[in-house]
Simulated assay, not measured.
Amino acid sequence: MKREHLEGTVARMLSIYGSSDVFFTSPDRRFPNRNTIIGILKDIRTIMFPRYFEDEKPSHSNLEYFVGTTLDAVGDALFRQVREALLFRDAPQISLEEAEQRSRTITKQFLNKIPSLLELLIKDVDAAFEGDPAAQSREEIIFSYPGFFAISVYRIAHELYVLDVPLIPRIMTEYAHQKTGVDLNAGAQVGEYFFIDHATGVVIGETTIIGNHVKIYQGVTLGALSTRGGQKLAGVKRHPTIEDDVTIYSNASILGGETVIGKGSVIAGSAFVTESVPAGSRVSVRCQEVNVHQHRSKTS
């Protein structure tokens, strides 16, 4: 097709670009790179669990070198992406020099958190192994469980969220969402020994608080009662609090920022909960009736 046939289309596209803030057509507009951020995630997981995910298989003798060089590469890449994210959100109020200074501080703080994140994730592996009789080993969980993958990405993203890094935590958790079907917002506060069994369809909102030793199944929603207030609700506690030792079975929905599920409670599958329940509760669904009709063939 000749170029002159496209001139009208090109002009319309340029007009749309110029009339909306969502397009990065200005050479002065800064923003992070999604593929680089996903690469950072992969490198961090490789540091945490060497020989599990990548082709490079460090031996015990060169493990110190492998961890050190990979951490160095992660630090360089993360610094650049955090700088671009800060400039994306805060420019022109923030200068390049200020963004670089803040990015160095954030990157250093995050890298220092990686050992603690690994300790947390090992506890999550233990929770999955103890909670799933189908698990043949802890290694199997690290290799293959989608729930553990989603939790590991969340824990990384959450540290950046706490450090007030824009965009990057959401890019990370949406990558896990795409891979696993688990939509676990980086802003949620999740305690130790967390297990998501089967994983698919789980939604956990930004202001959710989850205690220790909590187990949830596929299809669970920890959400808001209503989001019609839009941006006016930003920063407001919209999602529930789940205390320690709670089990939530498949397709249950627990909604509302004032809703608290007390310690040791069990929420039945398909339950719809919008009010707090005391510790030790058993929340069940009544009046569900299953009817089985057997087709009988006519006899001659």
Score class of each variant (00 low, 15 high):
residue 59 S to L: 07
residue 142 I to W: 02
residue 19 S to P: 02
residue 41 L to R: 09
residue 152 S to C: 05
residue 108 K to L: 06
residue 16 I to G: 09
residue 127 A to R: 09
residue 66 F to H: 13
residue 176 A to E: 14
residue 32 P to L: 03
residue 25 T to P: 00
residue 196 I to V: 13
residue 128 A to G: 01
residue 161 Y to T: 04
residue 265 S to C: 11
residue 267 I to F: 04
residue 235 G to K: 01
residue 34 R to K: 15
residue 207 T to P: 04
residue 187 G to N: 09
residue 297 S to R: 09
residue 132 D to R: 12
residue 151 I to A: 03
residue 171 I to Q: 03
residue 43 D to Q: 11
residue 291 N to Y: 01
residue 277 V to M: 01
residue 260 V to K: 10
residue 185 N to M: 02
residue 106 I to A: 04
residue 149 F to T: 12
residue 170 R to Q: 11
residue 214 V to D: 02
residue 206 E to C: 06
residue 8 G to H: 12
residue 187 G to F: 03
residue 234 A to Q: 09
residue 141 I to P: 05
residue 23 F to E: 09
residue 120 L to I: 02
residue 264 G to N: 08
residue 54 E to C: 05
residue 8 G to M: 12
residue 147 G to S: 07
residue 23 F to L: 09
residue 94 I to Y: 00
residue 154 Y to M: 00
residue 13 M to P: 00
residue 264 G to Q: 08
residue 49 F to E: 07
residue 250 S to I: 03
residue 286 R to K: 10
residue 139 E to L: 09
residue 85 A to H: 08
residue 115 P to W: 00
residue 59 S to Y: 01
residue 88 F to W: 11
residue 11 A to F: 01
residue 263 K to N: 15
residue 275 E to C: 02
residue 77 A to H: 10
residue 21 D to Y: 12
residue 267 I to A: 02
residue 215 K to I: 09
residue 60 H to F: 10
residue 102 R to G: 04
residue 47 I to P: 02
residue 16 I to R: 14
residue 49 F to T: 13
residue 148 F to Y: 12
residue 164 D to Q: 15
residue 27 P to M: 06
residue 73 A to M: 06
residue 220 V to W: 06
residue 21 D to P: 13
residue 69 T to D: 10
residue 7 E to T: 15
residue 103 S to V: 04
residue 270 S to R: 00
residue 251 N to S: 15
residue 100 E to Q: 12
residue 270 S to C: 06
residue 129 F to W: 07
residue 99 A to G: 10
residue 123 K to C: 10
residue 210 I to L: 09
residue 195 F to R: 08
residue 101 Q to A: 14
residue 162 V to K: 06
residue 277 V to K: 11
residue 239 H to S: 08
residue 65 Y to P: 00
residue 253 S to T: 15
residue 64 E to R: 13
residue 197 D to Y: 05
residue 250 S to Y: 01
residue 284 S to P: 01
residue 70 T to M: 07
residue 267 I to S: 04
residue 179 K to D: 06
residue 165 V to H: 10
residue 202 V to E: 09
residue 21 D to I: 14
residue 186 A to S: 14
residue 28 D to K: 02
residue 167 L to A: 04
residue 141 I to D: 08
residue 295 H to T: 12
residue 296 R to P: 00
residue 171 I to R: 04
residue 191 G to Q: 03
residue 180 T to S: 07
residue 1 M to D: 13
residue 43 D to E: 10
residue 291 N to P: 00
residue 10 V to E: 14
residue 77 A to M: 14
residue 24 F to K: 15
residue 107 T to C: 08
residue 113 K to M: 03
residue 236 V to M: 08
residue 278 P to V: 03
residue 131 G to R: 10
residue 159 E to W: 01
residue 289 E to K: 12
residue 266 V to Y: 00
residue 114 I to C: 02
residue 42 K to H: 11
residue 63 L to K: 13
residue 177 H to Y: 06
residue 169 P to A: 15
residue 267 I to Q: 04
residue 209 I to Y: 05
residue 280 G to I: 09
residue 257 G to I: 05
residue 182 V to A: 11
residue 276 S to E: 04
residue 130 E to K: 14
residue 54 E to V: 10
residue 68 G to A: 14
residue 123 K to M: 08
residue 111 L to V: 05
residue 51 R to S: 11
residue 74 V to A: 11
residue 82 V to D: 07
residue 271 A to D: 13
residue 255 L to C: 15
residue 196 I to R: 05
residue 215 K to Q: 11
residue 61 S to V: 14
residue 39 G to S: 11
residue 45 R to K: 11
